[in-house]
């Protein structure tokens, strides 16, 4: 970088233009963050109900020195991650298998689609009363709600990928005498891998959204619990601390799934988009 700056006089016009644009693209996100903090400072100076960045920072530190329910911030984040981990384990096994089935087999599609559409038309949070009645308020019902909230997004993506396999690839298979098992495993599933990954990404973010809601309605751990605790005790700095943690963890999850996709499917040149 510094070398380039020294040599700026030797650069061609095109290089200088490129160089300036690159600087601009790096500066703009920083301005954006600074503007957000500025707006926050301004808003908190107007109302005492809106904690300042300093208050939030202080509250975050206090969360480590004086844990809530014997858990610091990381403990609560981990509790939430554990719940979505279990739910995603189910999504990525059963959900992917089910998506492949209804995307590939027309009879299965005709049979299961009405059932599946009815299921996914109901918002996951609407299940809470029934699930609470059946399973109480332990870990299992929370994981179940997360599954209900994230399963549809992976099934829909996988199904779309499997039913849009390019005919030409299947023709190549036919010319090379593939049997139907090879058509499925050597052609259809690999060609749908990018759609499957889109499902992995959307189900992850959906699970992260739903787990917070599930935790806000009766839990004694997790980031959603921290928010409802903050609400009950009028502890707005705690609410904002939790909100910011949620944002950061959500972004990290998106980066991780994106990175995994690039590792497993090196042929998709998806640009960073989160």
């Amino acid at each position: 970088m510094s070398k380039k700056k020294i040599n700026i006089e030797n650069m061609s016009a095109a290089e200088i233009r490129e160089h300036r644009l690159n600087i601009l693209y790096k500066v703009l996100p920083i301005i954006s963050i600074l503007l957000l903090i500025g707006l926050w400072l301004f808003a908190s100076s107007l109302s005492s109900g809106f904690p300042s960045p300093g208050d939030v920072w202080e509250r975050t530190v206090r969360l480590f020195t004086k844990p809530v329910k014997k858990m610091n911030l990381f403990g609560h984040i981990f509790a939430s991650l554990q719940r979505i981990g279990l739910a995603l384990l189910f999504d990525w096994t059963f959900g992917i298998a089910f998506g492949i089935l209804i995307g590939w087999n027309r009879k299965a599609k005709a049979f299961f689609t009405p059932m599946f559409n009815a299921f996914r038309a109901v918002p996951p949070l609407a299940w809470i009363p029934l699930i609470t009645l059946w399973f109480g308020i332990g870990e299992f019902p929370k994981v179940l709600i997360v599954i209900f909230g994230s399963l549809a997004s992976i099934v829909v993506n996988v199904q779309a990928g499997m039913s849009n396999v390019e005919q030409i690839y299947l023709n190549v298979g036919t010319v090379f005498n593939t049997n139907s098992r090879q058509q499925l495993f050597k052609i259809a599933i690999p060609s749908a891998l990018d759609a499957i990954f889109a499902g992995v990404r959307t189900s992850t973010s959906a699970a992260w959204m739903v787990v917070l809601a599930a935790e806000m309605l009766g839990a004694d751990s997790g980031v959603g619990f921290l928010i409802s605790r903050g609400m009950d005790s009028m502890d707005m700095p705690l609410v904002l601390t939790s909100m910011i943690s949620i944002g950061i963890v959500g972004a990290l999850l998106a980066i991780i799934t994106q990175y995994a996709e690039r590792l497993i499917c090196p042929w998709t040149r998806r640009k960073k988009s989160f």
């Binding site: 030409i168 690839y169 023709n171 190549v172 060609s191």
Partner: peptide, 12 residues
């Protein structure tokens, strides 16, 4: 055997 019109290489 067959050489296809186009795009018949498997991108993965």
């Amino acid at each position: 055997g067959m050489v296809f019109q186009s795009l018949a290489l498997m991108p993965w």
